[in-house]
Design a protein around this nucleic acid. Structure first.
Length: 277
DNA sequence: TCCTTATGTACAA
DNA sequence: TGTACCTAAGGAC
């Protein structure tokens, strides 16, 4: 479930269970060959930027983790069970263990290499140092669609396919609108919303975007069961009725990903939301 | 048991 | 734009 909120939550959880203590570091799968170099070292800091997770050992040894599409992390209480052969990285101490499976990246890097990762990422709504104007400076001069720009980690770091679809719905923005046609006030509102939604995502470890007035209870609909955890307006709701106006949710491929939107609530021009009924 | 799909990214052509 | 990479769950048979 890796969008930025997941990674920030993982940074917190790794710190809770392992920071300030020595860990036994292994790679049961064998692919993370640097593991033995870290056993007995103290985890001194954890950090997230967008979808990148950094675990610092000693003074300046970092494990750089990127979950990609399939990566998963599992925490558990000691004693750790025998690892399966897909565990890329296991940290263990007398109280806890944590297993990493299927990441795109799991590598030992230096301070300079870590800085290079930061340098190629845009502002992250979940980081206090984030500057939304830096993102807007790119958006306002681009003919690329806002849907593609929101997924570009050089523009905004941490937004993935779910937050993209949901934040555009919440601001009535057609996903195919060129970035240059997004107004400053629209961007301010989108950014503020991303900050709020993603913070809530870290807190709850899931993505919820439906406003109280549109929940199934408020709308007199049966409660939904959602296979990805949260309550959303459009993500993976292809051909289902929009929670707000009832129009069938539409889907299309865009840059090798599935895009979801409501063609009524998200108008190409900057009109308001659709009226129900 | 096989096939599809997934909240991602990088690189080749 | 297509393909490769990594894993696991769910659905079709």
């Amino acid at each position: 479930m890796p969008e930025g909120h997941t990674i920030h939550r993982l940074a917190q959880d790794y710190a809770t269970h392992f920071q300030g203590r020595q860990a036994h570091v292994t790679s049961p799968q064998g692919k993370f060959t640097a593991a033995p170099l870290l056993t007995g070292a103290e985890l001194t800091r954890t950090e997230a930027h967008g979808k990148h997770l950094f675990l610092r050992f000693r003074e300046s040894d970092w494990i750089h983790i990127h979950l990609g599409l399939f990566g998963k992390v599992t925490f558990g209480d000691a004693p750790a069970p025998p690892p399966t052969d897909t565990v890329r990285l296991r940290l263990a101490n007398p109280d806890s263990y944590v297993d990493l499976r299927g990441p795109t990246t799991c590598a030992l890097i230096t301070d300079a290499e870590k800085q290079a990762v930061h340098d190629r990422l845009g502002p992250d709504p979940l980081r206090p140092d984030a500057d939304p104007d830096r993102a807007y400076a790119r958006i306002r001069r681009s003919r690329t669609t806002i849907a593609a720009l929101l997924m570009d980690q050089k523009v905004v770091a941490g937004v993935g396919n779910v937050y993209r679809a949901e934040v555009l719905f919440r601001h009535h923005v057609d996903p195919y609108r060129p970035g240059r046609d997004v107004t400053p006030s629209e961007w301010d509102a989108i950014w503020a919303d991303l900050v709020a939604l993603m913070r809530e995502g870290v807190r709850n470890n899931r993505i919820d975007t439906v406003r109280p007035e549109h929940t199934p209870e408020a709308m007199g609909r049966p409660p939904r069961v959602d296979d990805h955890g949260g309550e959303v307006y459009v993500y993976r709701r292809t051909a289902l009725p929009c929670h707000v106006c009832g129009t069938d949710i539409r889907t299309a491929g865009l840059a090798a990903r599935n895009l979801f939107w409501c063609p009524t609530c998200q108008q190409p021009a900057r009109t308001g939301p659709a009226r129900t009924g």
